Computed example of a mutant assay.
Amino acid sequence: MRFRTAVAGLVLVALPVLADKQAEPAQSAGRNTVSSAPDTLGTLLSLGAGLLAVIAIIYGCAWIIRRMNGMTGMNNNAIRVVSVMALGARERIALIEVGGQQILLGITPTAIRTLHVFEEPVVDAGNAPTGDFAKRLQSMIGKSWNAPGKE
């Protein structure tokens, strides 16, 4: 609805300009003037500059948004997801580490419940076990996941 209104407004604004442009050749027909071709190079440069300005504005907005997300003051190092396992299409269990304790959570589309709180860590968060796919990929490329610089 807004789009149609905007287009109708632009057409109404452009009609007098178009009428003036059509009236000019009729008025100048009596004079002996040479009509010039439109300046295509100038038009292309103007369009190119406008396109570059729009792209620069988009990238500038994206940069500002990324910078603002870092300024929220949230400390994401306090909570770490150690492991996640899918149980069904939308159900999962997750092992998270908070303040030196590991907590096993049950996650469904409607709720998150604490299943168990471990006093001692059951899995080292820095050395989480890799899956079967990761092991196969590691053997295929011949590099270690823990030491990316070593072969």
Rank of each mutant, 00 (worst) to 15 (best):
G131V: 00
I58A: 07
Q22K: 09
K135I: 09
I103A: 01
R66A: 12
P38N: 04
K150Y: 15
V34S: 08
A6T: 07
G126Y: 07
P16E: 00
T108M: 02
V54D: 03
D124H: 01
A62V: 14
F118K: 02
G142C: 04
E120F: 11
P38C: 06
P109I: 00
G70I: 01
L12P: 08
R66W: 15
A23Y: 04
L15K: 00
M68Q: 13
N146P: 05
T72H: 07
T40Y: 13
L105G: 02
A29T: 05
A56I: 04
G30C: 09
A19M: 03
K135H: 09
R67H: 05
V81S: 09
N77K: 08
G42S: 06
G30H: 07
V13G: 10
P121E: 13
A89N: 11
W145L: 13
A134V: 03
M74P: 05
L104R: 08
Q27T: 14
G50Y: 03
R92V: 13
L41M: 15
L87F: 09
I96S: 00
V123M: 03
S139L: 13
G88K: 02
G9N: 12
C61H: 14
V98L: 14
P109C: 00
A26K: 12
Q27S: 14
A19V: 01
Q102L: 00
Q138Y: 03
T40G: 12
L45H: 13
H116K: 08
R80V: 08
T108D: 01
I57Q: 02
W145F: 07
A37G: 05
L18K: 07
